[in-house]
Amino acid sequence: MVKAFAAYSSPDAALHAIRELKRAGYPEILCYSPIPYAEIQEELKPKSARVWAFSLLFAACGVMFGLTLVLGTFYLMNLITGGKPILSIPPGLVIAYECANLFGFLGTFTGLVLLTRRWRRKLDVYEERASEDKLVVLAECPDGHLTQVQNLLKKAGGELRPAGGR
């Protein structure tokens, strides 16, 4: 497989290129852009990201942690203060709520890092102007199809960029 790579000045042109590539039977497409474009997101339909699962799981752990912390502390220190029972539930709920949020923060960030494989620092195929004002469309194709894909990208108004295979 090789990669063909072209930069576009407008989201409409990039969208057109993506549609043409899909029509020609090249589904492995990636689009780099300075901002998220709803139309491109819709066209490329990424696999659903289950960030919420990380958030929910961590938040549930937070609730358990908060309750264990408070009730465990009460259990270890049998000291009546303020005339309240040893095992007071309301403080446990307050701490559990705060810990649910704290763990939720950590879970959501973990989800972001894992789901976008953010630990990879190496920028294998990348066009720096994608962080400024260009949209870059990258398509993967079999070795013999490179010229055809490059023609498609060029025809949609793209400036071809050198891109390596893998």
Partner: peptide, 27 residues
């Protein structure tokens, strides 16, 4: 963290940002 601004990255980023905003709003 190796951000390249791919459509996949933006998609996950937006989802995560909104969920995170919910947690912050709650706290």
């Amino acid at each position: 963290l190796g951000w390249k601004g791919t459509n996949r990255e933006w998609y996950v980023f937006q989802k995560a940002y909104t969920i995170y905003a919910c947690f912050l709003t709650a706290i």
